[in-house]
């Protein structure tokens, strides 16, 4: 067993456990351990991190998307895991290209369902294996991904009530990027 709260000892375990076959790269920056993994070994990696006695990451705190506009592949999906038993945090990073689905983490952490829906809503990164892959925050007629860097800051539609048609209408507007 490792010392509680020492991130470097956790990092030393990565090359000597079965993580070495799953992780393509790892680094410790600003007191956090980052693991870069390929999309197809993502589920195996987080399953290992959850079940292994040295890691015990029982909780999935959040899933975030990151848009690097001019990089190829364009997006990062970042999984923040927390180990309550060992008082440790870890970030698992998957690089993903536009319009490429990645495997869902729902089979490992059930809470991933809503986080993945949010990433889908905001960045348009889809997850296969998620039981309910639909929008969670924006309205269903909204067809853009607002947190992408090439999306206009003030949005692309404005809502108003149309007295003649007696319904709410979304009018397209020119965006400021």
């Amino acid at each position: 067993m490792i010392d509680k709260g020492n991130i470097n000892e956790l990092a030393e375990l990565v090359p000597i456990t079965s993580l070495r076959n799953l992780v393509s790269d790892f680094k410790v920056t600003k007191g956090e351990l980052f693991l870069n993994v390929k999309a197809d070994s993502l589920v195996k990696t987080i399953t290992f991190l959850k079940d292994d006695v040295n890691f015990q990451f029982e909780q999935l705190i959040d899933i975030c998307g990151v848009d690097y506009l001019n990089r190829e592949p364009r997006f990062d999906v970042v999984y923040h895991l927390l180990s309550i038993s060992l008082n440790q945090r870890i970030c698992v990073v998957v690089q993903v290209a536009d319009k490429t689905p990645i495997p869902s983490a729902v089979s490992v952490y059930e809470t991933a369902e809503w986080y993945e829906r949010e990433v889908w809503d905001m960045y348009g990164i889809s997850f296969f294996g998620n039981p309910d892959m639909c929008k969670i925050l924006t309205e269903s007629s909204f067809n853009d991904y607002p947190l992408r860097k090439d999306y206009p800051l003030n949005g692309s539609v404005k809502w108003s009530y149309d007295e003649k048609e007696q319904r709410l209408t979304a009018k397209s507007v020119d965006g400021i990027i």
Partner: peptide
């Protein structure tokens, strides 16, 4: 100026 917020509820009611 946000993408999601209606610019005033008098646009709706």
């Amino acid at each position: 100026q946000s993408y999601s917020v209606v610019e005033g509820c008098d646009k709706v009611v």
